[in-house]
Design a protein around this nucleic acid. Structure first.
Lengths: 143, 143
DNA sequence: GTGCTTGCAAATTCTTTGCAACTTT
DNA sequence: AAAGTTGCAAAGAATTTGCAAGCAC
């Protein structure tokens, strides 16, 4: 059996020299298992069940650490642009449900060449892009 | 000679029932002529030369009005997600220079079908997307 | 004149910083 | 024991709201 998402995050965090504390474990657990991007406040609220005295500040600081290690991505939504989601390996983009927020990664390599071409047409050398898809997931379509 | 971008914005704003005031004229002028997305603060600072007593609040309120009329788009950047840029007609996406901020719209229809397909693969019905390209513009490449 | 707009000031909300006490290693 | 972490409280930054005065129509 492969190690869980949470354990992987923990290992990588520890490997960077950071200490694995109770508040951090709670935060990692929440991020590792969430099906949708989370705001600092959401993480904070959920973390309180696991680490009662946790401070919102710790959530912000841990998110910063995880971001700088590339373990979470900053996700843009039409309303909230301050959410994070666990990183996927490879070049991936997010597909999110507009109803429940459920999100999955998809492979974005296909679009690459096309993006370069569009840039050239306008005299730009394209070096990056922001791509996210929105729609209804299977479950929310049925309701 | 076709009417200017600014005049077009003014007409549409007025057509919605809103009044054309001095602060609004200043804001429209700035948005209509900007080559890159603007934050409320940037608009505010520039507007002061045209309307000395303008308040930052008015900028926020005018932006809200323009957004709800679909005359400006909310633009996402890697750092600042609170900027606006004039809307383009048709289905368009933004290509922005990472150095000077210069932005141009490009036609995004090509990608549509591909996005639908990706969604289907994951059980989603794709209804929207967020796509922005980043790179260096002609001018900034040379420097 | 009527009623939408404005600018000010105050209130909110979100995020960051300073710091002494506390854990992890 | 040493050094990284934590939570609190306070500071900052960004945005929104209440309201009387002002301006567009």
């Amino acid at each position: 059996m492969p190690i869980s998402n949470k354990e992987l995050l923990e290992q990588k965090l520890q490997a960077s020299g950071a200490r694995i504390t109770k508040p951090r474990k709670a935060i990692l657990d929440i991020i590792a298992t969430s099906e949708h991007p989370l705001s600092a406040m959401e993480i904070f609220e959920r973390a309180q069940t696991q680490a009662p005295n946790i401070g919102l500040v710790t959530v912000y600081r841990t998110i910063d650490t995880l971001k700088s290690l590339g373990l979470v991505d900053h996700i843009h939504g039409s309303e909230d642009c301050q959410t994070v989601f666990r990183t996927a390996s490879g070049h991936r983009h997010l597909l999110s449900c507009t109803d429940c927020g459920k999100s999955v990664y998809f492979d974005g390599v296909l679009a690459e060449k096309e993006f370069q071409r569009i840039g050239r047409e306008h005299g730009f050398t394209v070096s990056g892009h922001l791509l996210q898809l929105f729609g209804l997931c299977t479950k929310c379509k049925g309701e």
